[in-house]
Amino acid sequence: MNPKSCNHLQAIDQIKSGAGVCEECVKTGDEWVHLRTCQTCGVTLCCDSSTNRHARAHHEETEHAVIASAEPNEYWAYCYNDNLYKKFKPE
């Protein structure tokens, strides 16, 4: 995990927080496992462990590269394009 090799992660100084629900799962009445917030537009969606994988679908549709955990006490971001993580210090 070397964030220096990923310009997308280097550009992020602070994690954007999002909603406490997957906005797409709420529309369909589905459940999710974990939540991720897009660091480009701020939408919160479900993770790859969830049935619908809305965060990944959002990345594939929009090409927004970086998501961050929207889970309490988790401070990391992930770049889909470079398959790298970056840890952040709690605020």
Results as ranks from 00 to 15, higher is better:
C46G: 05
A70Y: 06
H8A: 13
N7W: 03
M1H: 03
C38I: 01
E71G: 03
A55E: 05
T37K: 08
Y78M: 06
V43M: 06
N7P: 04
N73L: 09
H8W: 06
N81R: 09
L45W: 05
T40G: 00
T62V: 08
V33C: 13
S5I: 13
E31S: 12
A19N: 02
H64S: 08
K86L: 05
G18C: 07
K16T: 13
D82N: 14
H64C: 03
C46Y: 03
K86G: 10
A55M: 11
S5D: 15
L45C: 10
D48W: 08
R53I: 06
A11S: 13
V66F: 07
C79N: 03
E74C: 01
L35R: 04
V43A: 09
S5E: 15
T51L: 11
C25A: 10
Q14K: 13
K4G: 11
C38D: 11
L9W: 03
V66Q: 03
M1P: 03
H8C: 02
I12H: 04
H54L: 11
Q14Y: 09
C6S: 15
H64E: 11
S50W: 04
P72I: 11
R56P: 03
C47G: 09
G42S: 08
D82L: 14
D82T: 15
E23Y: 10
H54C: 15
E60Y: 00
C79H: 08
T28M: 03
A77T: 05
V66S: 06
H34D: 12
L9E: 08
E24M: 15
C22F: 01
E61A: 14
P90K: 13
H58P: 01
S50C: 13
V66M: 02
